[in-house]
Each structure stands twice: as C-alpha cells, then as structure tokens.
Amino acid sequence: MKRILGGVIAVLIFIVLALAFVHIPFGNIDLAEYHYYNPVDNEHTQDSVPQHYLDEGKKETGSTNIVTAVVVDYRGFDTLGEVTVLFLASTGVGSIMYIFEKEKRRKVRRANAVVETASKLLFGFIILFGAYIFVHGHLTPGGGFPGGAVIASSFLLLYLAYPRFHAEHKNLNIAESLAGLTFVGVGILGLFLAGYFLYNFLPFGLPTYLFSAGVIPVIYVAVGVKVGSELTGIVDAMMGVRE
C-alpha cells in the first residue's frame, strides 16, 4: 500500500516538474531579448547576464575559458561556498569516522602484481594530469574541481592496489587548510586592495597565456589542491573503517 502510494507521489511530482521543465528554452535562444536590472544603481539595462558574460567576459576577467570566468570570477563567492561544502563533507566524515580510526586494520588480500605495478606507474601521470587540468583551468575546459577529483582518483588507485597504503592525515589536513586559507586570503586581499571581496587584483596579462587572468589560476590551484586532499581524506576515512 505504502509502496503504491509512494510510486503515485513520485510519478505525480515527476509529471508536475516535467510540465515546468518543458518551458525551459532549449537549443539556440536569443539571449538578447532578455535585459537585466541593477538593483544597486537602480538601472535597467538592455542586456542579458549570459550575453554579457559571452561578450565581455574575456575582457573583464582575462580568462580565455568563459566558464572559468563565471565560476571563479563573476561568481567566485559561490565557488568559495562550494569548496566549503566539500570541506565540510570531509570534516563531517572525518568527525564521524573518528571513533574507528584507532582500531586495527584487518588483514586483507593483496592485489595482484599487474595492478600494483600499473598503479605505481600511473600514479604520477594521473597526478600530473590532474595538476594540468587545474593549472590550465582558465585556458581549457576543466578547473579546480575536476583536477582535484583526478588527483584524488590517483590516490584511490593506490588504496586499491596497496591495502596497507595510508595517506598521512596530518599532511592532508595541512594541505587543505593552506589551500583554503589561500582562497580566503586572496579574497580578503582583494577587499583590502580594491574594496571588493575576491577582486581580481593581479594584472590580466595576455589572453591564452598560462600566466594570465589575474588571480584565477591562483584560486584554481588552491581549489585543486583542496579538492584533491579533501576527497583523498574522505576516501581514506572510508577505507580506514575496519570492523
């Protein structure tokens, strides 16, 4: 009975939401027909937000990758929040898993030689790839989050290949703290230098060059390190559980 009721509710919600979603414009849309209102200066502008990003993004942020421009610069504060969410998740998992940490690790079967060797070999390359993704965040698709995730997956590989592998928690913590402090520090520095939190105060440089787009690469490196160490921390906490 309950099952049927649940199903009916789910289907109804699905229908209701689907009816709303069909209103979302799809494909080629004319962004110019929107215009926005600036509540601070109380002015209406014949321009839409996405269109503005596309037209002016490169100029205003110095980032070649518009997505990065939006994520790190226009809406950098959201990114700070998202990083915090991840930080919270890792902290929360760490705090919950704390009781299990001191217990002994169970004997587990070793992985076979192929896996061990391959992961040893791949480990460095994957890290390198991850670093590449976040360092080039403002130039190519990708950025701190996927880069960090890639780094974490390299550690995951190690965990799978060597059951006794254990990343030092202290180091992970230091890494994520420093990365987080960098992010907030850059923000506060912007506040002091220019009066805006997270202001892009460094010179933009030439577009498409590695050293361009002001603070964006700095932030993305911090985010990458942070996400990498946090996800590794979560994996480690989960792996650390032994009955």
């Binding site: 601070v40 937000v49 809406r75 950098g76 805006y196 892009n200």
Partner: peptide
C-alpha cells in the same frame, strides 16, 4: 548595504544585501 563581491555589478556578480 550592498556589498559587491569580485567587483562585478549585480546581477553579473554576487552581491550581499
């Protein structure tokens, strides 16, 4: 108070109000 973040006027950037 409108505290503009990142130096971009709303609604382009985020604002604390």
């Amino acid at each position: 108070i409108f505290d503009i973040l990142g130096g971009f006027k709303p609604p382009l950037g985020i604002v604390l109000m």
